[in-house]
Design a protein around this nucleic acid. Structure first.
Length: 431
RNA sequence: GCAGGGGUUGGGGAGUGGUUAAACCCACCUGUCUGUAAAACAGGCGCUUUAUGCUUCACAGGUUCGAAUCCUGUCCCCUGCACCA
């Protein structure tokens, strides 16, 4: 732990965190202490692990003495991506955004220092200024600096225009708003850097250009840096699991799920993730790299990665419960599971997994229950799987289709875990 | 608008009156193996009260003891031609 990086650029380079940056952004980050912002969409109640990349990026900037600003896009969130569908985009109410903002801030507090004297982090809602914009003023003072030809030539726009559905004016104007955000922060918070995913490059540059055009006397003062967007080796979006996004909120995504998500990283991506997410020492890293090459089956890297990330997000307590639940549920050592683990696992499972005592007492079969709770799609399927040995109850394979669930099968006197194969489990609570 | 071809179980694609719940390939699921991997092998892949049971082959009717297969109508897709520019 605690590598000594001379500066943030050295650190970012080692972590392979940077995809692109504007000219001289690197030398400025070494020479000066700057203020950098990164925007987050407040549409969800909680941040998800994809956001961990910018969060840790800001954290590392702060560690090197730079000042991070988090913009929660209350204003831009209302404009947003209409994502191809004809559906009306739900406008978030101010109260809702305010609520999300509070939630997001409390999550960020674990990662960023808001109290620090020299370079305290800030979290700001851009509706503060965007909602006050006057249309005429905006078109005169800001719109004038945008050349339609340039806007149209942006890849993101070009792709949409060539498609049949086209692009709405609302979405088209999004880049102006994000550029305006940057300008506003530049002028009012002395913020000269914007960070974002590589898909944001166009929007970031738009802001940089706007600032340059509006401040002709200052030479090229605004900069942008981007981090690469992660996809898994299967080409899936990073951070999505079978049952939805992995969030940072333990009430929504229990630590066990975070752990499992990273434990299932492939050998190709696991080392990349370790560099990106953890504070591993060079020496340990080299050792793990070697271990993964020599004996990948030991999954040492996966183990290290998932353990570390779970700890970063949920602390030691969360990490320990994730380890215990993993040993119980995935390695078959059911004995070590505590009552709280069963409750935890239940919390982490889908909705509608309640079973009434009455139903239980009337004698329900395993076959039936595995269909009722979506483990199998039909009685025929569950029968087949049971006969093939694919269904287990609390970790024990059941081969008899006549098996009836009784109160003796309950764990912690109220939880029932049925599994299909090794990886899909349903946790059912009896009340 | 005219002519021709076509719509089959997640995708591709056989099947032109009966033993066809429908070949085959892919995807997917389970088991064995394994590294909570990949590959390989085995089983499976409409539903159920497992029965010479039920519901399926674009949709609605009809012929027949019996239809995905034949007839009529409707909808949709592709390809030529025409019309309109």
């Amino acid at each position: 732990m605690n590598n000594k990086f001379e500066n943030i650029i050295e650190e970012f380079k080692w972590r392979e965190y940077l995809k692109d940056f504007t000219t001289n952004a690197d030398s400025l980050l070494i020479k000066e202490k700057i203020t950098c912002y990164n925007g987050f969409d407040p549409t969800a109640k909680s941040l998800h692990i994809g956001n961990l990349i910018p969060i840790l990026g800001l954290q590392r900037l702060q560690n090197h003495g730079h000042t991070p600003i988090v913009i929660v896009g209350g204003g831009t969130g209302m404009i947003g991506d209409p994502s191809g569908k004809a559906d009306e985009r739900k406008l978030l109410s101010n109260e809702q955004i305010e609520e999300n903002l509070i939630g997001i801030k409390s999550q960020l507090e674990k990662f960023l220092d808001f109290e620090n004297k020299n370079n305290p982090a800030k979290i700001i809602n851009n509706s503060e200024w965007l909602s006050k914009i006057n249309l005429i003023d905006f078109l005169r003072d800001t719109g004038k600096f945008f050349n339609l030809n340039n806007m149209m030539s942006k890849d993101s726009v070009k792709n949409r225009i060539s498609r049949e559905e086209g692009i709405s004016f609302t979405e088209f104007s999004y880049q102006l708003l994000q550029a305006y955000d940057f300008l506003y922060l530049f002028e009012n918070y002395n913020c000269t850097f914007q960070m974002g995913g590589s898909d944001q490059w166009g929007n970031i540059v738009a802001g940089v250009d706007l600032i340059r055009k509006k401040n002709t006397n200052i030479n090229n003062k605004a900069h942008g840096i981007t981090y690469p967007l992660l996809t898994t080796s299967n080409g899936e979006k990073f951070g999505k699991s079978v049952d939805g996004a992995i969030t940072l909120d333990p009430e929504v995504t229990i630590p066990y799920k975070v752990f499992q998500y990273f434990y299932n990283s492939s050998d190709e991506e696991v080392l990349k993730y370790i560099k990106l997410f953890t504070d591993i020492s060079f020496k340990d890293y080299e050792e793990l790299k070697e271990a993964t090459l020599q004996s990948p089956f030991k999954r040492e890297s996966q183990h290290f990665l998932s353990k570390e990330i779970t700890r970063i997000i949920h602390g030691d307590k969360g990490m320990n419960s994730a380890l215990r639940q993993t040993e119980g549920l995935n390695q078959g050592n059911w004995k070590i599971l505590k009552e709280e683990d069963y409750k935890d696992l239940y919390k982490g499972s889908d909705e509608n997994t309640q079973l009434s005592r009455k139903e239980l007492d009337s004698g329900i079969t395993l076959q039936q229950i595995s269909v009722n709770y979506g483990l199998c799609s039909s009685l025929a399927e569950s029968k087949r799987l049971i006969l093939q040995g694919g269904i287990s109850l609390n970790g024990e394979k059941i081969n008899k289709i006549e098996k009836i669930i009784t109160t003796n099968d309950l764990k912690a006197n109220q939880i029932l875990i049925i599994s299909k194969g090794k990886k899909s489990h349903k946790i059912i609570k009896v009340d």
